[in-house]
Design a protein around this nucleic acid. Structure first.
Length: 545
RNA sequence: GCGCCUGUGGCUCAACGGAUAGAGCACUAGCCUCCGAAGCUGGUGGUGCAGGUUCAAUUCCUGCCAGGCGCACCA
């Protein structure tokens, strides 16, 4: 019951409306909200404001009547011991104030059950495939990939925490035009190193790493024809290492080359053909994506007989479903947003719901150094890499910074700010709260750890802190609904702030035994939530700093 | 031209359609005989423009202005 206090309160309000024969006047679903500010109670409803027009009466007057009806229902409710006040406030809001015992019970649950108390079975074991990064193996990962890596990995952590069965997948574009160009780039550089005068085309890969690969290829006597695959393998090793250092681990590396070999692309085509979604025109083979709302039909086999990028991708997404996943999540860069409709069209052509694929567009991050934005150009090999950010800033601060803004918003990332170990840096603000708690707990002797009566926690800062802890579950709910983990970073800063305020005003140690024990329990609870949240972000939880 | 995203204090960002628009940085005035001052407290300062819907608009709709990104038989 206590886990569903929001639902119980909603039911209570509905019973009150029924008793007053007002229920039929309410059109929309009634939901008890969390107030924007806790001085407006613990739950609120705007029902009186919404009824004002139909009843042709002032909202506050209606609210007053409703409160009387609600108060008659309370003694009959399971909540009777948990509601301390119901009041009309503001323009006509009805605000519910919960009894502190409710919060003490919740806190006790967190302390005894640990992280398990924070879990919710929202996924019910549903199988989710989250595909992200999927950068072509033609160079080091950029900061755009880095943000995708941070967002994808964190989202996967959250979904797993909510009891989804999550797999992380990297789609490896290891064949095709860009691998050919990569091979030719290495070939030319190898010839250049051998002393030949060469002309290096502008659309070839310009980076210095091509020379390194050329030297390695020369040492191993790789033939010109195999240079593309060889170079891709070399670069893939670099990429894997970069991701591991960023603490991102993929379950599956899905090779486009293997997909092509398997014959699954042709199988997918023949199934689409049976269903009547393929046609020939101008010597090319087209997919009839307009049947599912795309702007225009798309070519999948060009008139020269080669496939477009879309061809293996259609087969790839169908393969994901065939592997038994119920929900696909793709993280793409903003340059791919025009691609959403056609790939959604393809999954619908195979009979899947368009909602079974969620495409999340991860906006770019602009990297600043000393307040100056750094322009990026992949072609010239001049772009800030994940490796550079990791070397300068470290994994913790990088991950936190990449997750600090809504995923759909542009992100400014100043390397100098992220490097600072100071108050400007929100990562340290949160980690500092954790370390402070650990510091207190370290100085506690075994004998002082007794059973604690939490009801001695009566200070405002103590109750604010407990309430903030209980928000954690709500935040994870929002992350799931929005498919965006960024709220966790905001929340952890708020929780840390609540802790720092408590710490500043009240002492844990050296109080009366009952109070010290209760406050120790309180900060143990905070530590559990902080640690859990930081863990979901993939950020360390230092015992000391 | 069409589509998507974004316009909130000097800067970077918040605000399920709700209550006095919140934080951080910067600027500024304070707080360590006391569990970690990487902390806490106070002050200055804001919704691009014009309409509309609503009891209520930063949020939804229309138009305009400004910025970013897409619109391939490229990947």
């Amino acid at each position: 019951m206590q886990n569903n206090i929001q639902e119980e309160l909603t039911a209570l309000v509905k019973r009150a409306l029924l008793a007053g024969e007002l229920d039929k006047l309410v059109q929309e679903e009634i939901v008890l909200d969390f107030p924007t500010d806790n001085r407006f109670g613990d739950f609120t409803t705007n029902i009186a404001l919404r009824l004002s027009k139909t009843l042709k009466n002032a909202p506050r007057h209606i609210a007053g009547i409703l409160v009387e009806l609600i108060q008659k229902e309370i003694p009959k409710s399971e909540l009777k011991d948990l509601i301390s006040q119901v009041k009309v406030e503001g323009a006509g809001f009805i605000n519910f104030y919960l009894d502190p015992n409710y919060f003490y019970n919740q806190l006790a649950g967190i302390i005894t059950r640990g992280e398990d108390a924070l879990k919710q079975d929202l996924g019910k074991g549903k199988r989710v495939l989250i595909e992200f990064v999927s950068a072509n193996p033609t160079g080091s990962l950029s900061v755009a990939h880095a943000r995708q890596a941070a967002v994808g990995d964190c989202l996967a952590n959250i979904l797993k925490f909510l009891n989804f069965n999550v797999q992380r997948e990297y789609y490896l574009n290891d064949e095709g035009n860009q691998i050919n160009i990569l091979g030719k780039s290495v070939q030319l550089r190898r010839e250049e190193l051998a002393g030949k005068i060469i002309e290096f085309p502008e659309n070839y890969y310009q980076g210095d790493y091509i020379y390194d690969i050329a030297r390695e290829a020369e040492k191993k006597k790789i033939s010109d024809a195999d240079l593309g695959d060889f170079a891709a393998d070399c670069i893939l090793k670099i990429i894997r290492k970069e991701l591991i250092d960023f603490k991102v681990n993929f379950d599956i590396w899905f090779s486009q080359k293997e997909l092509a070999k398997s014959g699954k692309v042709e199988q997918a085509f023949s199934r689409l053909k049976e269903k009547g979604f393929l046609f020939e025109q101008d010597g090319a083979l087209w997919f009839k994506s307009t049947a599912f709302g795309d702007d225009k039909d798309r070519v999948i086999i060009k008139s020269d007989g080669s496939q477009t990028y879309l061809a293996p991708d259609i087969a790839y997404h169908e393969d994901k479903f065939r592997r038994g996943f119920d929900w696909l999540i793709n993280l793409w860069g903003p340059d791919h947003h025009g691609y959403i409709n056609r790939i959604k069209a393809s999954i619908q052509a195979f009979g899947h719901s368009p909602d079974s694929l969620s495409v999340i567009i991860v906006q770019l991050a602009t990297i600043f150094r000393n307040g100056q934005p750094i322009q990026m150009s992949t072609r010239r090999g001049q772009y800030i890499t994940l490796r550079e950010v990791l070397d300068e800033v470290g994994s913790d601060a990088s991950r936190f910074f990449f997750l600090m803004r809504r995923t759909s918003s542009h992100l400014d990332f100043d390397l100098e700010v992220a490097k600072k170990q100071s108050a400007e840096n929100p990562v340290y603000y949160v980690q500092y709260a954790h370390a402070r708690i650990c510091s207190i707990l370290r100085s506690v002797t075994i004998s002082s750890r007794g059973e604690s009566d939490l009801s001695v926690l009566k200070e405002k800062e103590e109750l604010d802190l407990i309430k903030k802890m209980l928000e954690f579950k709500v935040i994870l709910n929002i992350c799931l609904i929005t498919c965006d983990p960024y709220m966790v970073t905001v929340y952890l800063q708020e929780l840390s702030e609540a802790f720092h305020k408590f710490y500043d005003r009240h002492r844990v140690l050296g109080q009366a035994e009952a109070l010290t024990n209760a406050r120790l329990a309180l900060i143990r609870g905070v530590k559990i939530v902080l640690s859990c949240g930081l863990g979901l972000l993939g950020v360390n939880q230092p015992e000391s700093m």
